[in-house]
Amino acid sequence: MICSRSPISVGGFFLGRGEVVTDSAIELQNVTVTYQTPKGEIPALEDIQLKITPGEFVALVGPSGCGKSTILSLIAGLFDPTYGKVFVKGEQPGRHQSRIGYMLQQDFLLPWRTVLDNAKLGLELQKDRGKENLVEDLLNTYGLGKFLHHHPTELSGGMRQRVALVRTLAVDPDIFLLDEPFSALDYQTRTTIQEEVWQALKSRRKTTVLVTHDVGEAVAMSDRVIVLTSRPATVKRDLTIEFGEEHPGPWQARKSKGFVEYVDLIWDELREYVDRDLLPEKGGT
């Protein structure tokens, strides 16, 4: 049902290291997650079907607390679904952890390490020596060359998120999971970092899943936006975003024809939850 509709989807089959042959980078089959608590079961995800092709940039939007981040944790192999299956490049995640890059709302730079040492953390953990020059090059690319030996507390929020980006790019994962990495930044910085991250990921043909509250951001950056319902989350709408032949990048996309319509369309899908959350009693303003 959801197939490779993105402009730069890879046509052929991807041969996973395992026995499964699939053309999707990420696949969720009938995934249900329930959290067990002493007070009872809390359903988080219900029967989620999702296929993401290599190189595709997919955004997940939905009401607060609906379980968007849970989907990312499943893909990262941090835990297993209650029912259903998750495949990353045809294999169950977990053994693939090292091939996944994760960027969070907070940069989680280690405050006792310098910028350079923070950016090397991923390589260090994967015992991947010899790519250390690459880290310096990347930091230079993102204008952090002068701050290699500074500590994170001396940097602005945008610069810190750039270090986090370099830290993830350095290990060269095939799949990027972005959990609201721009939401803590001010508007100007956010716009710049969105553009930088998008360029970095698209030029490297990375598969990306972005979780965001910002509908505009989702439309501007993605090839596809998936609207989830409130908890337990199900897929409510799967919307392909197209701005002509090739995606012009988030900055241009915001100015493109159709941008506002896409945003409106998604807002309409989300409106019922927003109204319920914000105006519980009376309804309407």
Binding site: L78, Y102, F108, L125, V171
Partner: peptide, 18 residues
Amino acid sequence: VPEGYVKLIRVFGGNRWD
């Protein structure tokens, strides 16, 4: 210690010792 740091190390393939 904030859970995010632990998550970060795990996603990079680090073990409990890391």
